[in-house]
Amino acid sequence: MTRIKTHRTMGKMPAVVIWQPYSDDGSQEPAIVVQADACGIIVIAQEGREVLIQPEIVPALITAMRQMKAGE
């Protein structure tokens, strides 16, 4: 399994840049930036698009993502 590359930026609440691996056909999705705003809202950004997530729903989001990855 390919290890996902991440990079932390500088700051009090550092952002994390997640570099997505190349697929078998040589294409690659753009990097994803995950950071918290001044109010603690989590911001997931990719190429100018942003999703705002309340910290309280992170466990539910992780569960949903694991289910999707497993094909449930």
Rank of each mutant, 00 (worst) to 15 (best):
M1E: 11
T2I: 13
K5W: 07
R8D: 01
T9F: 03
M10Q: 02
G11Y: 03
K12D: 03
V17Y: 00
I18M: 07
I18E: 04
W19P: 06
Q20K: 11
Q20Y: 02
Q20L: 14
Q20W: 08
Y22D: 11
S23E: 10
D24I: 08
D24L: 11
D25E: 08
G26Q: 05
S27H: 14
Q28Y: 03
Q28R: 15
A31T: 03
V33K: 06
V34G: 05
V34N: 01
Q35Y: 11
Q35H: 10
Q35T: 06
A36R: 02
A36Y: 07
D37V: 01
A38S: 03
A38M: 06
C39W: 14
G40A: 00
I42H: 07
I42M: 05
I44E: 04
A45V: 08
E47T: 13
E47C: 13
G48F: 07
R49D: 09
R49E: 10
E50S: 13
E50D: 12
V51E: 11
L52D: 03
Q54C: 11
P55Y: 04
E56T: 13
I57V: 15
I57F: 10
A64K: 15
M65I: 15
R66L: 15
Q67D: 12
Q67P: 07
A70L: 14
E72Q: 14
E72M: 12
